[in-house]
Design a protein around this nucleic acid. Structure first.
Lengths: 169, 169
DNA sequence: TATTGTTATACTCTATAACTATA
DNA sequence: TATAGTTATAGAGTATAACAATA
């Protein structure tokens, strides 16, 4: 990837570093989750989302929206988690079409068992390497990127290529 | 993931932002690669690595090392790419055990066809959102993290998370 | 024996489309 | 008709272990 057709060296370096660090951390985290709790990344995300929700309950659709993937993909994962006794599924009372997924005590327990290791990995790979100021700077920058991404990718304004020179914020 | 057991809010925010931005960009890039050239992310990475190498040639092992995954995984991908006429595989002359993977003209051509779109996505999602200073700052920080990760994760400092975990599934 | 790579196999994940049922 | 979710299915990706060939 020497010639990226219009990304200068610095831009390319930023992109590649982001990509690599992201995937390395993800990899390390997934290994830990698997080893400590037999959980895959997606499964952990579902359990964590539920743990974060009011009564450990969320509708399938809300879960799917928060986590990116398709309905059917979530159905598959939810079925796995249900088989393992980590969540239950039941129709919502107000709307019989909706399914409410609920974290079971056992699910919460497993999450508690896995969390320390999870935190340890993140701490060791990311937090410990940076001083608080850098960490805050990075978070700020990345949040800006994330917000922009979520605000609908300006598909309309695609043909933009002014290599930098923009002061967002 | 409200309670992360020992990550403060800022640390957690940094981690989550990194994770989310990384996966959103990866997703967008993979979609573009698939649409513009019928390539998966891993396949593109292999082709790009080859394009970067001296004569468009690399040994299987060197490819695998550079790209993370297992030998067998690379064998699979290399076979796909060979079927598509994008690379060739031939034993090395100095060491009959080694296989040299070579980018074909057609492979290089496809790469050329896919690159503009690839760059455009990165530009739109990442570069355009940040001013040059932020970009440089982020690259610097992430490079520090990456270097540390590569310098063998101080496995010594990881008190193994025994905790009899091992059951869900 | 160690290294390079392939094969066989098995499993996870994801997506699309067709389908059911509620609203 | 529109929405929520499931099912059937199909395919891609990855890893592990056993294997063959070369060094």
């Amino acid at each position: 990837m020497t010639d990226a057709s219009s990304l200068d060296a610095g831009q390319l370096a930023a992109y590649l570093a982001l990509k690599e660090v992201g995937s390395l951390i993800e990899h390390a985290v997934e290994q830990q989750l698997r080893a400590d709790g037999g959980l895959s990344g997606p499964q952990f995300q579902i359990l964590a989302s539920l743990a974060d929700a009011p009564r450990g309950r969320l509708r399938m659709t809300d879960l799917a929206d928060g986590l990116v993937y398709s309905r059917s993909g979530l159905t598959y994962q939810a079925a796995q988690l249900e088989k393992a006794g980590l969540v239950t599924r039941a129709p919502a009372e107000e709307d019989e079409r909706s399914i409410i997924v609920t974290l079971t005590p056992r699910g919460r327990e497993l999450l508690g068992k896995v969390m320390p290791g999870h935190v340890e990995v993140v701490q060791r790979l990311l937090i410990d390497v940076l001083d608080p100021a850098d960490l805050a700077t990075m978070a700020g920058i990345l949040n800006r990127v994330r917000d922009r991404m979520r605000t609908g990718p300006p598909r309309s304004a695609a043909p933009r290529r002014s290599a930098g020179a923009r002061k967002p914020r």
